[in-house]
Nucleic acid binder design. Sequence first.
DNA 1: TTGTATGCGTTATCAC
DNA 2: GTGATAACGCATACAA
Lengths: 344, 344
Amino acid sequence: MTRNGRAPSVKDVAAAAGVSLGTVSNVLNRPAVVSTATRERVERAMAELGFIRNESARQLRAGTSRALAYVMLDGGNPFFHDVAEGIETAAEDADLSLFVCNSNGRGDREAKHLDRLVQQRVQGILITPADPDAPHLAEIAQRGTPFVMVDRLSRAGDHCSVSVDDVLGGRIAVEHLIDRGHQRVAFVGGPSHIGQVRERLQGAREVWAEFGLPADDLINLPTEAMTVTEGRSAGERLAGLPSRRRPTAAFCANDLLALGLLQHAVTAGLRVPDDLAIVGFDDIDFAAAAAVPLTSVRQPRQELGRTAARLVLDEATNPDHVHEQATFVPALVARASTGLVRRS
Amino acid sequence: MTRNGRAPSVKDVAAAAGVSLGTVSNVLNRPAVVSTATRERVERAMAELGFIRNESARQLRAGTSRALAYVMLDGGNPFFHDVAEGIETAAEDADLSLFVCNSNGRGDREAKHLDRLVQQRVQGILITPADPDAPHLAEIAQRGTPFVMVDRLSRAGDHCSVSVDDVLGGRIAVEHLIDRGHQRVAFVGGPSHIGQVRERLQGAREVWAEFGLPADDLINLPTEAMTVTEGRSAGERLAGLPSRRRPTAAFCANDLLALGLLQHAVTAGLRVPDDLAIVGFDDIDFAAAAAVPLTSVRQPRQELGRTAARLVLDEATNPDHVHEQATFVPALVARASTGLVRRS
DNA sequence: TTGTATGCGTTATCAC
DNA sequence: GTGATAACGCATACAA
């Protein structure tokens, strides 16, 4: 602290070094233009005073910050971390900071974060929203803040997005199960207003019909959320079904549900995959690390993040930017949880 | 965008509403002092122009930002999320933003984040550092930025910290195993320059000695990191031990290691806990959700975060602040992974 | 109740 | 090569 209780400024450095404020600025921004002697004197003064550039002042002057932001949907789901890692990588390359916020699925918290970020004048906002069609999102896109939706799609297409073909994801998951000989399969996921849940279910239903299987044998087990706890409770409901209705396999809308279901199955003495095969979605690291390694539909998580960052930066810097909806193709990763099917 | 391609400012609003800049500012900060008629006129102008306060300008003027920051050690470990949630709760209560950064265990990335945060003039920095004694941390504390170390302790005590009694944690974990009849136990953890690892091992050794068990029968299985993958590899080494040396139980320095070890054990056909009992540390949600629910040493994760935020806010606002090292007491949560021990 | 003036720290433009 | 000065957007002390 110098003078007034604030941190030392260029002014203080200038005084200490016996030069003008402009010269200090030159040392900072165009060192080549200042003589070695004075430069060193200024640098010494900066070191002695512990001078640190004030980013708000730079930002005020520059009119824009040097930061991106990502508003995560669920910090407790490792999937979003991996996405964030991808974003961070790209941000680092562009020499930008990344502010990571977490809405935890709460629309009000999301809105609060967004307000703050716009006030901060971040260069761009990446978000996996609780509701892709929420009005506060449309506002932001219209205001002109570069904006990319991550792992979601909105009805209005006036912004960039990166996502995965969820219908296809549902298809390959269930096709895998049909291949394995399953004729009665549960779909575990919800709430159904989540686009992903609907689309993964749709994909599941499509293949199911294409293989000529009766619609009744694809059983819907809705959940309140996409969490381990909800997966466990779905397991209980599944176990409670009359045995002639009980599925031999389950396709879960994400890996957390699958892990919960797996846990309940093991606890209940079911053998996985013999009594119950399980497919998850996302392929988070914990999926491979489960006691019975989980078959899952992989999304390119880091790639999703990197691409999203690329798009938002393009929108921020390229005057000829056009919005783009990048779609990735999911892939099945087969592991033990669907490995061996007892055909009876 | 108005005028110069920048977002509309108070000045623009003033012009549009036909009042002075000071009046606009009054509407923003002291609405009571301005007449209803002009206030409404100003508010209408703000709405029409899409005016949004510029946080950098406010911050520059105020001399300090309205944000805290938490630099996480490992975004892939849910433990740190829960800590972050606790911090966020407290930040919300104080009406502050929270910037969450992730060093991913890399000292260079940590330093970069810290640089940026200091430049941003955040009100306080919370951090779980890669190395508690790194010089860049001491610098920050000395510069006067409110600073709290989370879940770590440094040798120099010139700052606040919140942590858990790790020696005690090690003690209760191993005491539990001894209670269960185990006479040969592995300690899985590393690298040993992590204070936590050393202390948890120390606690383990203390009880081991107090029960008069031979030191050789507490086997150290060092790991390169605290990850699921490393836990799996520790499992392989454990399985490779000659059977008369092979432990009947393992105490892992965190839950990720424990989950990896558990997975390997199950894959290798070992029954848990009959052939191998496992105790983890942290009690992350995935511990309870494992196929064999994991006994673990619980840390009060959210509480840790809340307390850290409380301390940093006290340092930021209270002139009589004195540094405090808050220590929490860990507790054993017994689950199936140590549930049944076959005594032979 | 409203308007005017000043300064926060930085950068850039222009003289010298 | 260096110094003086203005501007970014906002908040406030003070004047009208």
